Computed example of a mutant assay.
Amino acid sequence: MSTIEPDTRDWAAVLDEGCEECGFTGNEDLLGVRTTIAEAAAAWTPSLGAPNASERIREDRWSTVEYAAHLRDVLTEFRARTLLMLAEEAPTLPNFDGDAVAVESDYRSQNSADVLAGLETAAAAYAATLADIGEDQWRRTGLRADGREFTIASLTRYGLHEVQHHLHDVTSPDVTSPDITA
C-alpha cells in the first residue's frame, strides 16, 4: 500500500487567484454557493456508485471514496467554523489537517455507501447553516492558526471550491495534484 505525499499548498489562495484546474473564480454568488453545497452529495452519487470507487487509479491520488470522505469532513469542519464565527468575535479557527484526518479516520477502507450518507448529512447541515446567515453576518471574521483571516462569505466560497475541486478530482482523469488539505 502506497502513501500519498502530504499536500503543503495553501489552498485558500484560490480565493484570491481562482483555480485553473476546476474553474473556480473566487467571485461566486453566495446564494448559488448555498445551493451547490446543498446539492453536493447528489453530484457524487454516480462516482461513489462506480465499482472501482474504492480503488486508487493512480498511486499518488486518493480514490473516489477517499476524496468524498475528505469532502464530508471538510463540510462538517466548515460548518463548525461558521458556527464559531457566528458565536464569537474573530475567533481562532481550529486547525484541520486533511492528511492526518485521512489517516486517523482510515478513509481508504471506508464504505462508499456510508461515505455518501455522511456526505449527504454534512452537505445538508452546512447548507442549512448557510441558509440562516443574515446579510450583516457574512462579514463576520475568524482567523486560521497561521493568521489568515476569513469572513463567513470567503469561508463559504472556499467551501464551494472544495466541493467543485474534489468532484473535478474524481471525474477528470488528467488532474495531477492531490488536493487534500483545507
Rank of each mutant, 00 (worst) to 15 (best):
P6T: 15
D7P: 04
R9W: 05
D10I: 09
A13C: 03
G18S: 07
G18N: 05
C19M: 09
F24K: 09
G26I: 11
N27A: 07
D29W: 06
L30E: 02
L31K: 10
G32W: 01
G32H: 07
G32S: 11
I37V: 12
A41G: 09
A43Q: 13
W44P: 04
T45S: 11
P46R: 11
A50Q: 09
P51M: 07
S54I: 05
R56D: 04
R58K: 15
E59C: 02
E59T: 13
W62Q: 06
W62K: 10
R72G: 01
D73L: 11
D73H: 06
V74L: 08
V74P: 00
L75Q: 14
T76A: 14
T82P: 01
M85A: 10
A87P: 02
A87M: 06
A87S: 14
E88L: 14
N95F: 04
D97E: 13
D97I: 07
A102D: 01
D106Q: 14
Q110S: 05
V115S: 00
G118E: 07
G118K: 09
E120Q: 14
T121G: 01
A122L: 11
A122K: 08
A125V: 10
Y126K: 04
A127L: 08
A128M: 09
A128I: 03
T129R: 03
A131C: 05
D132A: 14
I133T: 05
G134C: 03
E135L: 13
Q137M: 11
Q137I: 09
R140C: 04
R144K: 15
A145G: 03
A145W: 00
G147F: 02
F150L: 15
T151V: 09
T151H: 03
